[in-house]
Each structure stands twice: as structure tokens, then as C-alpha cells.
Design a protein around this nucleic acid. Structure first.
Length: 969
RNA sequence: AGGGACUUAGCUCAGCUGGUAGAGCGCCACCCUUACAAGGUGGAUGUCAUCGGUUCGAACCCGGUAGUCCCUACCA
């Protein structure tokens, strides 16, 4: 029976590791430092929220950059925060109260707000705890809340300054109105849904009874999707060039039921081909009509109350809600013979994303921010690349929106939020705007003033985030160091609502962009590509995923799917794959640790090594039941008795070791070892180092270019395939060192294995912080930092001693050897030779190079390919032997395996035919190309040469294979 | 309606400046080889949506068509 120890169990590692980071204050940014600054402001999640995969993706990307930069030696600030989320939070608390039979009205504003704060204190930390379970390295000591006093002060100051500058004004306007929340809402909070409804055709009688239309009717037919709004009609509009209605322009008609006489106007905005070409105008309840009405100086008649019930302007329909009024009105129209027909009609209707109700365009007095002026600088900053979008294509979306930008309605009729710092004078009726609390009107000194009841749109405070969180308007050190922030990471859905607004505010108040780069990522969708949402029931809970397979696996899965701002479908299978990857790394570590003993006579003391081995196994025996998980919401409650114990043990071991090494720094220690053992490093050691060098370059390039998935893939590939599959397999015999003779080689190899593995851990750390931190602790050397997160991220420079061992000629030898091994394995596999069956092998190289190199590696080849005896020469006879030609660079070798007595030969024949077919296809296309004069003439000579060489080699191969077929036929 | 994309193996997706297609998962075969069966080795699988153009050469560049999606928007 398998014991647990050979599986990585994240739940037994993650909380411990996180606690250690927190205790050591690892995530803290320096206010002032000689290190270069790097800063990211976290897009604040709603306090009411639960962590969803979108957060997990967004934040994991941030943490990857943050940890990467920190390891590169930057002074890193990742500033976390939560958003008060006006509407959402108020709605949640209201719902809770309603359950107890309490309404917010009965409580009154002050008491209701107390309840909201109470709720916030109790649950506001939930999402923070969930973030911590993902390993995010935010500077928690600087955690902000959008309603914090200092932030609120900044908000007030900004409001007042903008007001004084004439950019904020109060006006009666048509806004998106949620009848359920009884508040204006932002564009973002309006969700457009396609709805199947009807287009109703209604008669409007002419006032002048003698008047007729072209077709002799004494009424005009108007088509509408909202018949109930006719009660607020103040005109009917037609197109000026519409021949049908030309004679009617300026004439009057009657609005049914309310007996109002309205005028027929002409406007080029009317679509002649829609409906009847005549449109009723309800300026107070339709955005289009509103604009047209302003142009024509029409009357605005509001027929709704704030709660969506028709008011007295609706005459007989007063007291009904919109839908009831519509139904009754249609009935009445039919009765009065004013109804013509209905047609099925699909159109989009705005819904309140918070309460689900239909959004009514509603005329009300609101505060607005003029955005035209502010948008100019915001545009220019991106046009001049002062701020860059990554991927660049998103700048188009950004610029487009700023071009069509409208004034921003910033007031909300809610209780929970930033109070608008304005007071209305009851005497002179003027408004005073002030940062401080007012006692009397600044205009007439009257004491009879009232604070404006509205609060600000949540996005208003969000727009100031990059500087309000850094202490503005004070000139703090923090601000000097970290503004402009380095990087903003966000989904493409809020480029307008947040990114653009931060740009405008940052440029206005800090005279500099809020961030240098905006990294835009996609949204997480379900396996069918549909946006995840609770109501659809298709959302996957990241907390569950973490519980199941660990935060690292989840982070790596997300990172591996971040592709150039494209949306991603979360793949459960992929997730499992990366869970397996974590396990692979874990086991590679176990494997390496098992050799860390005096058997190899490494610098470690044997007692330390065995202690470590014990520890690794013990870490599975910990009784976790007495160590609470931090997702209980209380990090401090986590018990770390066990790990603390072994920590102190290790610490004393470590100090002992330090003494023994005579305080030589690790780097020089390492260099010393390399110098001393230069002759003991094997080709495969060198090969691995060359591959590492390549990987370091790839990862660096990928991350510099924000190609996260590419970086992740590169590390994955190197770790699993190069390091585990090939290197460790190649090195096993050396490590086991059965005859005990090659101690120096074993030590050299172990040295390489260990430091390359430490490089893997470092390269992976930004992606998978927990497992790498945990494993790092088992491989610590003198001079190593306490935490891997403070180690240098591998670079050509930081690893120069190790990488100096790279020798490409040796790298090639191993590459060649591997191709031979693969060829042998292929013969074995295709012929179904049993794994336990050891075979004979002949290698017949074409040239001296092949002869020399392959002779060097016969032992290795035997081990890796299950070969009993290997001769680097042609056998006397090829009878019943499988032959595979292997070509590598300028050399080639025939790989020959005698099959006599092992298998029947039908499989071999199949194998040969398959290969011949494959190569033939390539030969065909290659020779065709080379025959083409134009190709030879026009293509670069390098390409032509390569084609020729490749054709030649393939022809040689096919010859060998065909001979094989003859022998077996 | 306007804007932005996307279409590559059974599935999810890579493919960076045009040189002749890759990964993971799944599938098939053989293996519990003393780090790992959440593993190892080998294998199969693609008219790169479609049509046309540019080019010696196109998954990649340009244009048309079809299908899918997203965003913005008041179509009464």
C-alpha cells in the first residue's frame, strides 16, 4: 500500500508558509529605498464579494509580476484594498435586515449606516482571507478601504477642486434610474439584455378634424415599444424629407387619455423606415427623445415616481407600475379604437445589474463631471505612449471611448458611500461646496442649510485610487517613491469605467499618469465560453479548487492560460495536469534529498541530511487538526508548533555549518567547488546547465514581454522534460554510486542537480510560491536568504558561475545520444519487446565523430534504453535486425537491434513501412521544391542549402529502411 | 447599428519578424524499473473555417464569404 509521503499535499504546506511570510513581514515595501521602485495598486474587490476565478486570475498575474520584480531586487509595493461598493453593499445589508423584518427607512440613515459598518467589520475581511489563501504577497500593513478617513479626505478635496474649476455641476438630466434602488446608476451598472416584445401601432388623432394624411386618414399612426410613455409625450417627430408627412409638420395632434395637444415636428434623426416613420417623443423617459427635445425646446413631462409607479401626470393611470399601466393602456386603446396592431419585436432593454429591475431613463437632479477637457490629456498620454497598453491593441478601445465620452453622472441616491461635500441653503437656495463641515451658507450666511443627501458613485473614489491610497494630498514619501505606479493589471471589461477615469484624475491632480503600463487580461469563462456568474450556476469557486489541489496548481493553471488579453475558458483537466506537475516537483525534491548524505560526502553533515529527510516525511505526519486553517479568517490562530520546532533545530544546524565553512560566502564557495571539480562534471551535467541557460533566457524574455503563459510553459518544460525525464534518469547510476568508486563525479553531479533544481524553484516561485518556498527550505546553503522570495531571480548574471560551465559541443553530444536512445526505445516499443527483456545493440556511425561520441556514452545508452550490450560498430550480419537511421546535424548513425528470438517480425515490418511513408512524403515535397528554379533563385541560400542537406539525409535514411523491409519480407 | 476579435489534433489552446505545424488533456500499446501510477516509455491523429490575391514559398500578409463571440449603443 502506498503511503502518503510521496504525494505533495498542499494543505499541509500552504498555511504554514503563508504564516511564516507574514511573521517575517516579507511583503513590506520600503517608503524610501536605494532599490528601484516597482508598484502595483490592487483593483479593490468589493467588500461584499467572494473571491471568484476572475479575481484569482487578475490577482495571480499581479502576484507573479510582484514576486518576479521583488526577486529582481526591486523595492516592491503591492497595495491591497477593498471597495465599499455602494450599491452592492447597501443591497446586501438591506436584504439581511429585511429578513429580520426591518426596513432601512424605519432605521433611518444614521442607524442604517451603523448596521452597514457592523456588517463590514464582520464580513469585510472574508475576501482578504481568500486572497491570502492564494498566496498573494500584498503589503497588508497598508490595506486600504475606500471609505477610510484619509481616502475620504482626498475624495472631498478632489470634488471641491473640480467644482471650483467648474468641471463639476449639478443639473436636471436624464439618467439611468433603478426604480428598485431608487437611485441613479452608472452605465456600468446597466446590463443590456435582448428582450422579445412587441411594437405597438397607435392612432393619434389630429386636433384639426379636417386634417387628413396622404391616404385620407384623420389620424397619424405611431409605433412604439413603450405605449405607456405616451402619457408623457410632448411631440411626434417625422423625417423632414418624408413625403408622407411633409404637410403635417407643425400641425397638432392629441395624446390619448391625457388630452394634451402636441405638435408634429421634423428631425433628420428620425428613421423613415422604422415603424411608420413617425415617432412619439417622451423626453423625460427616453434618451433619444431627450436629446431631440432639447434641440426643439420641447416640454419634459415626468410620469414616474422614483419607485417606478406612475405619478399624477399619468392621469387615470396614476398609482400603477409601468407594466400594469402598459397592459391597461393597451386595453383602453383597443376599446377606444385607437389601437392598430402589434408586431413581435426584439430590442435591448437596460436592466439594473444590482437589483435586476428594468432601468428607466429618469429625469432628475444629479451631479455631473465634465469629462471632455479631462479626456484630452488622458488620450494624449496614451497616444504618446507615456502609458502603454499591453497588449497594445487595447489602446484602441481606450482611445475610442475617450473620444465619445459623455459627462459623468457622479451622484447616487444611496446612503452608503462618500457624502457629496455640498450644502443647500434653504434661504438663498444657493449651493456651497466645501471640504470642511459647514455651519452656514457661504453666500448669505444663513444657518438654515442642509447637507446634500447624495453620495458619490463608487467609481469616483476608484478613479483617485493610485494617489489617494498613497497619502495624497499630503506629499508623502510613499507617494514620491511609488507614483506613478509601474503596472496596472485589469480585465478588459473595465478599461472605460476605471482605467480611463484613473488616467484623467491622475493627470489632473498629479500632473502625471497613474501608471506606466496597463496589462490587460481576458475574463474567465466556463468550459462553454460563457461568463461565469452565480445566477447561471456555472461559476467555479476558487476556494474549492485550492482546497482540492492547492493554490499553486490553480495559479499555474491560470498563468498558463493568460494569452494576450484573450478570454480564457477554465479547464478542469488542465488544472489537474498542473496539480500533477506540483507533485512531480515535490518528488524530484524528495529524490534529491534522499542522496544528501555522507554517502556522497557532500558538505552537509549527515545528521543534517537525515534530519531534513525526516522532516520532509514528517511534514505528512503533522496532525493538522490542531492547526487551524487561515481560511477560518483568523491567521493568527494558526498553530505552527511543529514547524517552529524543526525550525529551531535547523537554525542551530545551520549556524554550526556556517562556522564550519569559515564564513566563506556562498557564491565564492560555489565558485571554489566549480574550480576544484572542473574535471569531474559530466557531459550530462554540462548539457543540463546549457538547457538551464536557455530556459533562463526564455523566461526572462517572456516575462519582460508580459507573455506569462510562455514563461510558465518554458519552466514547465524544462523542469519536467529536461530535468526530471532526462537529467535525473541519466544521473541515477552516478548518484547511486553503487561501487563507491566515483565519488568525485557523484559529488559534482549532485552539485549540479541541486543548484539547477534550486534554479527551477526560483524560476517557478512567482508562479507557485508555496511549494517552492517549502522545498527551498530543504536545500538552503550558507549565504542563502531566509526565504526564496528574497533570492535573486535567475539571470545570466546571477547564475554566471554555474552557467559558465555550459559547453555547447558537449550539449550536442548528449542531444545526439538522446536521439539514439529514443530510436532504440522506438524499436522496442513498436516491436512490443518486453521491458524486462534486455536487448543487444549495435551502433554503426557514419563518421569518426559519431564513433567517438557514441563510444563515450555506451554505458548511458545501455541504462536508458534497456540494453544488455552495446557495440559501436556494424554487426557481422543484419539478419533479423531492426535498423533505424538516425541523423543529427552533420552526422548520422544506424541504430541496429537484433530481434531474433525476441518477437515475430510483423510489427517491425509495419514500423518500417510507417517510417518510409512518412519520409517519402517529405522527400517528395522537398525535391519538388528544389526542382523549382524560382525557389533556388529567390529563397535565401541558407534555406536552399538546408533543404538540400535535409533531402540528402532523408534519401540515405530511406535506403536503410528499404533494405530493412527487404530483409523482413 | 458601430467597434473589436476569433475559427489550428477528439477537447482546451500555443505557434513571437512568412521557410512547410506543437503542448497539455484524452486515446492506443507495453510497463507498479528502489523520486513520482498525480508516474515511465513508445505510438496514432490536422486540406491550419472557406474562396481568391501577394510571394519561389502562406496557419501567419491583403481582400471576399460563412460561422462563433465580446464590447459599446436610445433605434422609437
Amino acid at each position: 500500500m502506498k503511503t502518503l509521503k510521496d504525494r505533495y499535499q498542499p494543505e499541509k504546506v500552504e498555511s504554514n508558509i503563508y504564516k511564516k511570510w507574514i511573521d517575517a513581514d516579507c511583503f513590506k515595501a520600503e517608503e524610501k529605498s536605494k532599490k528601484p521602485p516597482f508598484s502595483i495598486i490592487l483593483p479593490p474587490p468589493n467588500v461584499t464579494g467572494f473571491l471568484h476565478l476572475g479575481h484569482a486570475l487578475d490577482q495571480s498575474i499581479q502576484d507573479i509580476f510582484v514576486r518576479w520584480k521583488r526577486m529582481q531586487g526591486y523595492n516592491v509595493l503591492w497595495l491591497p484594498a477593498t471597495d465599499h461598493a455602494g450599491i452592492a453593499t447597501q443591497a446586501v445589508v438591506e436584504k439581511e435586515l429585511n429578513k429580520k423584518g426591518i426596513t432601512k427607512q424605519s432605521l433611518g440613515k444614521e442607524n442604517f449606516l451603523k448596521e452597514v459598518w457592523k456588517w463590514k467589520e464582520q464580513y469585510g475581511h472574508r475576501i482578504i482571507d481568500q486572497m491570502k489563501s492564494l498566496g498573494h504577497s500584498c503589503d497588508w500593513g497598508r490595506l486600504k478601504f475606500t471609505l477610510d478617513q484619509d481616502v475620504s479626505r482626498a475624495v472631498k478635496k478632489v470634488f471641491v477642486k473640480l467644482y471650483d474649476k467648474g468641471l463639476i455641476y449639478k443639473g436636471l438630466r436624464l439618467v439611468n434610474w433603478s426604480t428598485k434602488l431608487e437611485s441613479a446608476v452608472s452605465d456600468l451598472e446597466v446590463e443590456h439584455k435582448n428582450v422579445s416584445s412587441f411594437l405597438w401601432y397607435i392612432k393619434y388623432n389630429f386636433v384639426d378634424e379636417k386634417l387628413t394624411t396622404n391616404d385620407n386618414k384623420n389620424y397619424l399612426v405611431v409605433a412604439t415599444t413603450r405605449p405607456e410613455t405616451l402619457l408623457g409625450d410632448t411631440a411626434v417627430a417625422v423625417h423632414p424629407k418624408d413625403e408622407r408627412y411633409k404637410n403635417l409638420i407643425g400641425k397638432k395632434i392629441k395624446v390619448p387619455f391625457v388630452n394634451r395637444q402636441i405638435i408634429i415636428i421634423s428631425d433628420p434623426g428620425v428613421d423613415k423606415d422604422f415603424g411608420t416613420g413617425a415617432v412619439k417623443l417622451t423626453p423625460a423617459h427616453d434618451f433619444n427623445d431627450y436629446e431631440m427635445a432639447k434641440k426643439h425646446n420641447l416640454e419634459f413631462i415626468n410620469i414616474l415616481n422614483q419607485n417606478g409607479i406612475l405619478n399624477k401626470n399619468a392621469g387615470p393611470y396614476e398609482g400603477l407600475n409601468v407594466l400594469k399601466a402598459r397592459a391597461k393602456l393597451l386595453e383602453d386603446l383597443k376599446e377606444k379604437n385607437l389601437f392598430i396592431k402589434e408586431e413581435p419585436h426584439k430590442h435591448s432593454v437596460g436592466h439594473c445589474s444590482r437589483s435586476g429591475c428594468v432601468i428607466e431613463p429618469f429625469l432628475s437632479k444629479q451631479w455631473f463631471l465634465k469629462t471632455k477637457e479631462l479626456s484630452v490629456q488622458a488620450r494624449r498620454a496614451v497616444e504618446t505612449e507615456t502609458t502603454k497598453f499591453e497588449p497594445e491593441s487595447w489602446s484602441k478601445t481606450y482611445l475610442h471611448w475617450l473620444e465619445i465620452i459623455q459627462d459623468w453622472c457622479i451622484s447616487r441616491q444611496l446612503w452608503w458611500g462618500h457624502q457629496i461635500p455640498a450644502w443647500n441653503c434653504m434661504d438663498c437656495l444657493k449651493v456651497t461646496v466645501s471640504e470642511g463641515d459647514l455651519k452656514n451658507c457661504q453666500h448669505c450666511k444663513s444657518l438654515n442649510i442642509q447637507a446634500d443627501p447624495d453620495v458619490l458613485d463608487t467609481w469616483f473614489s476608484s478613479a483617485l485610487w493610485p494617489f489617494s491610497t498613497l497619502g495624497w494630498p499630503e506629499e508623502t514619501e510613499l507617494q514620491k517613491t511609488f507614483y506613478p505606479t509601474s503596472l496596472l493589471i485589469t480585465g478588459h471589461d473595465i478599461i472605460f469605467f476605471w482605467v480611463a477615469r484613473m488616467m484623467m484624475m491622475g493627470l489632473e491632480f498629479k500632473k502625471d499618469v497613474p501608471f506606466r503600463t496597463v496589462f490587460v487580461h481576458g475574463l474567465v469563462r466556463d468550459s462553454k465560453g460563457i461568463k461565469m456568474s452565480k445566477s447561471l450556476g456555472n461559476s467555479i469557486d476558487p476556494v474549492e479548487l485550492i482546497k482540492k489541489s492547492g493554490a499553486d496548481a490553480l495559479r499555474f493553471t491560470l498563468a498558463s492560460q493568460v494569452m494576450a488579453g484573450k478570454d480564457l475558458k477554465f479547464s478542469q483537466e488542465r488544472f489537474e495536469g498542473y496539480r500533477n506537475f506540483m507533485n512531480k516537483i515535490w518528488n524530484a525534491a524528495r529524490f534529491l534529498i534522499s542522496f544528501e548524505s555522507d554517502k556522497l560526502n557532500l558538505k552537509e553533515t549527515s545528521s543534517l541530511a537525515s534530519l531534513r529527510a525526516e522532516r520532509l516525511e514528517d511534514s505528512f505526519k503533522f496532525n493538522l487538526s490542531d492547526s487551524k486553517r487561515y481560511d477560518s479568517g483568523d491567521l493568527d490562530a494558526v498553530s505552527f508548533v511543529n514547524s517552529n520546532l524543526s525550525d529551531s533545530k535547523e537554525a542551530s544546524e545551520r549556524s554550526a555549518r556556517r562556522d564550519a565553512s569559515e564564513a566563506v560566502s556562498f557564491e565564492s564557495d560555489k565558485l571554489e567547488f566549480i574550480k576544484e571539480n572542473k574535471n569531474y562534471f559530466s557531459s550530462r551535467d554540462i548539457w543540463l546547465i546549457c538547457k538551464l541557460k536557455n530556459t533562463i533566457k526564455e523566461v526572462d524574455k517572456a516575462l519582460e514581454n508580459y507573455h506569462i503563459a510562455e514563461a510558465a510553459a518554458s519552466v514547465y518544460n524544462f523542469s519536467w522534460h529536461y530535468f526530471c525525464d532526462w537529467y535525473l534518469e541519466m544521473s541515477k547510476n552516478t548518484f547511486y554510486n553503487k561501487d563507491g568508486k566515483n565519488l568525485k563525479e557523484a559529488r559534482a553531479s549532485y552539485f549540479v542537480a541541486k543548484y539547477v533544481f534550486k534554479n527551477i524553484l526560483k524560476l517557478m516561485h512567482p508562479f507557485t510560491p508555496f511549494i517552492t518556498e517549502e522545498l527551498f527550505s530543504y536545500f538552503k546553503d550558507t549565504g542563502d536568504k531566509d526565504f526564496i522570495m528574497f533570492e535573486s531571480f535567475p539571470s545570466l548574471k546571477s547564475e554566471k558561475h554555474l552557467l559558465s560551465l555550459c559547453d555547447e559541443s558537449l550539449e550536442e553530444e548528449i542531444d545526439f545520444m538522446q536521439m539514439v536512445v529514443t530510436a532504440v526505445r522506438n524499436i522496442r516499443g513498436e516491436n512490443r519487446v518486453k521491458a524486462s527483456e534486455k536487448i543487444m545493440l549495435y551502433l554503426s556511425p557514419k563518421d569518426d565523430y559519431g564513433q567517438k561520441v557514441l563510444s563515450k556514452y555506451v554505458d548511458l545508452i545501455c541504462n536508458l534504453a534497456g540494453v544488455k550490450e552495446c557495440f559501436v560498430k556494424a554487426p557481422e550480419s543484419l539478419e533479423k535486425s531492426a535498423v533505424t537511421p538516425v541523423s543529427f546535424k552533420n552526422t548520422s548513425v544506424n541504430v541496429i537491434v537484433p530481434l531474433k528470438g525476441l518477437v515475430d517480425f510483423s510489427e517491425e515490418l509495419k514500423r518500417l513501412t510507417k517510417q518510409i511513408d512518412k519520409i517519402n512524403l517529405e522527400i517528395k515535397s522537398l525535391s519538388l521544391r528544389l526542382k523549382d528554379e524560382n525557389f533556388v533563385k529567390n529563397a535565401p541560400s541558407k534555406v536552399v542549402e538546408e533543404s538540400k542537406k535535409s533531402l540528402k539525409s532523408m534519401n540515405e535514411q530511406i535506403k536503410v529502411l528499404k533494405e530493412g523491409v527487404e530483409r523482413f519480407s
